[in-house]
């Protein structure tokens, strides 16, 4: 505790803290929380889905599109077959009920393990400005699924595409109340530029990120 008191004492002394200006400081904190003012933002136009698709390309994510959520397993089976990957995956418990067996995909609903080659998730929402998935941790949406496997497939309802990160926060406040333990913004496969500043896809996270857009409302 001594370190805390010491440091705060130094900070207060440096700022010339008094009872009066302390009140001003507290007022500023409350004002910031009440206003939640946004900074300058780009105007993206009306077609957010088109922008999202374009940015996904920039991030080296691949894209598919289906009409309804029930079509997702077949699209997954098709993608895995094309890549020569086995039709086995760990899925978010949230999507345990999709017709996986009918599409010939062996899907297990649990947190991911090291040996899982394919992880299937959804997203809380998606951000058009940067082609980003916003995922929120919960018992039926564990973060490890989008992290450990080499291939990450994500379901993106078109109705959940928003313009910017600010809109994602607004949705989270409205629908979740407080923030979950982990909010992860994911933009394409993992990469590194640490050797000779040469970008290589596939570092500690997935090598491939494949997004399946779902059109139904």
């Amino acid at each position: 505790m001594q370190a805390r008191e010491d440091i705060l004492f130094r900070v207060r002394a440096a700022l010339g803290r008094s009872d009066r200006n302390r009140h001003e400081g507290e007022t500023d904190v409350q004002a910031a929380f009440a206003a939640r003012a946004q900074g300058p933002r780009p105007q993206l136009g009306a077609d957010l889905a088109a922008r999202f698709r374009h940015e996904c390309g920039v991030q080296s994510s691949t894209l598919d599109e289906v009409a309804a959520l029930a079509d997702v397993p077949a699209a997954v089976a098709r993608y895995l077959a094309e890549r020569g990957l086995p039709p086995r995956a760990v899925v978010w418990p949230k999507y345990a009920g999709l017709p996986w067996a009918a599409a010939g995909v062996e899907a297990e609903a649990r947190a991911a393990r090291d040996e899982d080659l394919v992880g299937i998730t959804g997203c809380f929402c998606a951000i058009a400005e940067t082609g980003t998935l916003m995922t929120c941790s919960a018992p039926d949406t564990p973060p490890s699924t989008s992290l450990l496997p080499e291939t990450h497939i994500a379901v993106v309802p078109v109705s959940r595409i928003v313009a910017g990160m600010e809109d994602g926060w607004a949705l989270a406040r409205a629908e979740l109340g407080e923030l979950p333990r982990a909010v992860n913004f994911i933009s394409g496969p993992s990469r590194t530029g640490d050797i000779e500043q040469t970008i290589v896809i596939g570092a500690h996270g997935p090598y491939r990120v494949h997004l399946i857009l779902v059109r139904e409302g």
Binding site: G131, S137, P139, I186, S187, S190
Partner: peptide, 24 residues
Amino acid sequence: ATGQHISNYVSVLTGVKRPEDLDG
């Protein structure tokens, strides 16, 4: 920093694992 529109992973982490969470 790197000239990216956004970095691949941006995480906002709040508090500890909740009792029913599968990881964290």
